[in-house]
Amino acid sequence: MDSFDSLGVFSLLEKIFQIDRTELGNFVPNENGITNLSWSFSVRGDKYMFRYPGELSRLFVNRQIEYDAYQSLISRGIQVSDELVYLDPHTGIKITKFIENFKHPDFKNISELSRSVHLIKQLHTSGIKVDSVYDFKETFLNYEKSLPVDFLNYVPDYTLLRKKFFNVLDELKIPADPVFCHTDPIPYNFLLKEDRDYIIDFEYASMGFYLFDLAAMIVYGELDKEWLHVILEIYSGEAPSSDLVSELAKYVGITSMIWVVFYLGGIGTGRDLEIQLKSAYRYASLYLEKF
């Protein structure tokens, strides 16, 4: 618990909850985070989640946008997120009520994928607007600044993939009227319960095209190409056109390449980063192949 003292966590929690340190307990680290440190803890019998931003995430995440996203969801009564207790838009420190008895979805399970897509669509159709539009090129170049000197040892054909990435960007259809997107819909950010489902962690939320979120779910769920058609039909309720499937495939290619540079740059702090890099690289290679 020495790290808690050095980070000032105990003092902050005493101030927020107006309690003595002795009333804090049951601190358990969360192993699923990629860019942040987090723990569950209890106060007077109630359980919460505490997030402390990772060092590199501070350089790439606009915490004010995350704060605005939560406030917009609350003010509009859109009950899809975890319950916010505290969020400092300057430090990124966040506290939410702990959600019990949930499971993370398996996107290869049609029912669980459908429930997850339904949550994403609620965001897209919410009418929420935040002061950030996702820019693929800018995001890619920012992540690229963190690449280590030996990154070619991990992705030897990086230069070719990079060229194909920008070729796809030139062909991409960017909508004139973007919608509110989560942009980080990994299975760990969905919590499915018998009575209600949740989507959490809006630190990368921005305005964008709905296909971006669906493409990210294809990559994070490690879904094969036939799932492009499936996820689009789940989303719209009707069979998608071949042009729409092809457009989604382009989004899968650029999304996976952005995650390649994210993992190569060591921006994440979670476990299994090498496995995640290999998965993102596989999708980038597959979906950027013809470009």
Rank of each mutant, 00 (worst) to 15 (best):
P148L: 07
G127W: 09
D5C: 03
F140T: 09
F202W: 13
L191E: 06
K290C: 10
F102I: 10
Y154K: 09
V155D: 06
Y220E: 12
V43A: 04
G77W: 00
L160P: 01
K173H: 09
F98V: 05
E274L: 13
L119Y: 07
V179G: 09
V9F: 03
W259D: 03
Q71Y: 06
D46P: 07
R76C: 04
P178T: 03
K163Q: 14
Y154F: 15
V80G: 05
L214V: 12
I65T: 11
F102Y: 13
L161I: 13
S132I: 13
Y235N: 06
V245Y: 00
L161H: 08
F262G: 08
S146F: 15
Y251L: 06
N101K: 15
Y263W: 11
N109T: 07
R51L: 11
L87Q: 08
L264N: 10
Y188Q: 15
S75G: 02
D213Y: 00
F107H: 02
E144I: 12
Y154I: 02
M49E: 07
S132V: 07
N26E: 14
V133Q: 03
Y210F: 13
L119M: 02
R282D: 03
E203W: 01
V61A: 00
S11C: 07
I174G: 04
R63A: 06
N30M: 11
I19M: 04
Y198L: 08
F4R: 06
N36M: 08
L172A: 00
V61W: 01
D272V: 04
D68H: 09
Y158W: 11
D224A: 15
I95W: 03
G92A: 08
S57R: 05
K121I: 09
F60R: 06
L113P: 00
Q122V: 13
A205K: 00
E23A: 11
D150T: 12
S126D: 05
H229E: 11
K103R: 13
K129V: 15
V80A: 01
L191H: 00
G8P: 08
F98H: 10
Y52H: 15
V252K: 02
L147Q: 03
I16T: 04
F202E: 08
V252R: 02
N36V: 07
D46M: 12
Q71R: 14
A249I: 02
I19D: 09
R21Q: 13
V149L: 12
V80E: 06
E194H: 07
P240V: 04
H182K: 10
P89A: 07
I19L: 12
K108S: 15
V43M: 07
L192D: 07
Y86V: 06
I174V: 14
M49W: 10
S236E: 12
S3T: 10
S236P: 06
S111Q: 05
F41I: 10
H182W: 02
N32V: 12
E55S: 08
S114F: 00
S75A: 15
I258T: 13
D177A: 04
E194N: 13
R44P: 09
V133D: 00
D197V: 07
S116N: 06
G237I: 11
